[in-house]
């Protein structure tokens, strides 16, 4: 059994439909076995077409910043150079999901809401979403553990952006509230 139930969501960019209609819950699970039953039968992120996302969130939290669990929060963002899609993307996404369902963040685990992987022509992104952007101790602990669990080089930095900041600016201008 997992500590909580999780839900996998899939987003496919169909421009003729509203954003919310393009986002669909695939299924929920609450055991390790059911996680693998799902994972072993869906496409890897590197095989999705550009514009698609997967999101894995605690059951009851929708993968959008407007959800009450997300709106005061933010995300640790890992931006991948284009050439890394075929080398690292799938491994990094799997390791992200294993951190989530395995509750790898210890006492700050409840502050972790979920994660999103975006497949994009200009570079894929993986983001870990947390509940409270102003809880510095929590955000920094989660960021350090996450960076280490992904095996990112000490020379690499990842930034944390509050959703409130990202929502009002294009992503390239959203400031980093924290970095590790």
């Amino acid at each position: 059994p997992l500590m909580t139930s999780w839900a996998l969501w899939f987003f496919k960019n169909e421009r003729s439909r509203a954003w919310r209609e393009n986002l669909q819950m695939v299924t929920r699970f609450d055991t390790v076995e059911d996680f693998w039953a799902l994972y072993n039968n869906i496409k890897l992120p590197s095989k999705l077409s550009p514009g698609c996302d997967y999101a894995l969130f605690r059951d009851g939290i929708e993968p959008m910043w407007e959800d009450s669990s997300n709106k005061r929060g933010g995300r640790w963002l890992v931006s991948l150079a284009k050439q890394l899609r075929h080398l690292d993307l799938d491994r990094l996404w799997l390791d992200t999901m294993l951190c989530l369902i395995g509750e790898g963040f210890g006492d700050y685990g409840p502050d972790v809401c979920g994660a999103v992987v975006n497949i994009r022509t200009k570079g894929d992104k993986i983001a870990l979403w947390t509940r409270e952007a102003d809880s510095q101790a929590s955000v920094m602990h989660i960021g350090r553990v996450y960076k280490e669990r992904l095996g990112l080089s000490m020379k690499a930095t990842i930034g944390y952006q509050a959703h409130a900041d990202t929502a009002t600016k294009s992503n390239s201008l959203a400031r980093n509230k924290f970095v590790v």
Binding site: P1, V32, F35, C99, G102, E103, G104, G106, R149
Partner: peptide
């Protein structure tokens, strides 16, 4: 228990046959 599982523990389940 706290149900904190590390990566290697979780990976061990990936290809186990389901029990019926």
């Amino acid at each position: 228990g706290k149900k904190q599982y590390d990566r290697e523990f979780l990976l061990d389940f990936q290809f186990l046959p389901a029990c019926v």
